[in-house]
Simulated assay, not measured.
Amino acid sequence: MNKVISKDGTSIAYDKTGNGPVLILVDGALCYRASGPNGPLAEQLKEDFTVYTYDRRGRGDSDEKKPYAVEREVEDIDALIQEAGGSAYVFGSSSGAALALEAARCLPAIKKLALYEAPFVVDDSRAGVPEDYLDQLTEHVASDRRGKAIKLFMGKGVGVPAIFITMMPFMPAWKKMKAIAHTLPYDTILTVDHQKGKSLSAEEWSSVTIPTLVGVGGKSPAWMNNAMQELANVLPNAKHRTLERQTHIVKPDALAPVLTEFFME
C-alpha cells in the first residue's frame, strides 16, 4: 500500500501494479481496494497498463477532511495523477463513473476516459429518486442507521429489486458495506441531479472533448441502457459499447479486453 496527500491534506491510500500507460480505476459506492471489482480488474489489465486502484476518501485506508465536496474527490484523483507522472487514463464504474466524468471535466491531465453504467435516470423507464432522497440518506447516516442507508441507496438510488435488498444482510460483504456506509451521501451528491427522469444536458460536459467510452451491460435494465446511450450522445467525443451478457456487476474478464482495446487504440 502507498499513500499520496491530496490538496486539502487528506491521505489517500492506493496500490500500483503493472507496466505501461497509467490507468486509474475509480470505484463506485460501497467499494474500496479490499472489497470491490477493481482489484480483480487491475489484475486483468496489468500486462498493458500501470494500474492504480485507490480507496476513495473516507473508505478503507484513506482518511478524509470534512465537509465533503465533489471538488475534494476530484483533487484526490489529481493527486494520484501527479504522483503517477502527470497524465493518465481514467475508468469509473457506477457512481465512480459520475466521479470520473466530473474529474475529466476539471482535469486536462486525463487523456482518455471510460465509463460503465453511471446510475443516471433520464426518462420514465424507471421512477426517479424522491425529492427528499438525499435528505433521507443523510439522516440515516447521521443516526448511524447504516443498514437502512444501504437499503435505501440500493432501492431508490440503484433500483435493485426488493427481494435482493432483503437478502443483502445475509451476504458475506454486508459487514464491509456497513463499514463505509457513511460515504453513501457522497455518491448520491455525485449522481442525484441526474436521477430524476430528465434528459442530460450537453452543455454540462461540453468541455469533456477527450475520447470517451460509455459502456453498458447487455443484460442491464432498459433505464440503464437508455441513460448510457444518451450520455454517449451528449458527450462531444464519445462512443457507446454494449457488453453482451453483462449486468451492472460486470465481470473483469469481459470488461478488461474492452478497456484495453479502447485505451490502446
Rank of each mutant, 00 (worst) to 15 (best):
E71K: 06
S95A: 11
V90G: 03
A118T: 08
K111G: 04
A69F: 05
G147V: 10
S125G: 11
E117S: 10
E71F: 04
Y52W: 05
D63F: 04
A100I: 15
V74K: 11
L107G: 02
Q136N: 07
L101I: 14
L101R: 15
E131Q: 04
E75P: 09
L99P: 15
K65T: 05
V74A: 07
E131F: 09
K65D: 04
K111Y: 00
R146K: 13
I110L: 06
D76V: 14
L99G: 06
L134D: 00
A114P: 07
E131V: 12
P108F: 06
P67G: 15
K151A: 13
G92M: 05
P67Y: 06
T138H: 14
R145W: 00
A103T: 09
A114C: 03
T53I: 14
K112E: 00
A79D: 08
R56H: 11
A103V: 15
A114H: 01
G85Y: 05
K151V: 09
R72T: 08
L115M: 12
F153W: 06
L115E: 03
R59A: 14
I81N: 02
V141E: 00
A88Y: 00
D63Q: 15
L101S: 07
A88G: 01
Y116P: 10
P130N: 06
Y68I: 09
E117C: 05
F91Y: 06
Y52C: 13
Y133T: 09
D135R: 12
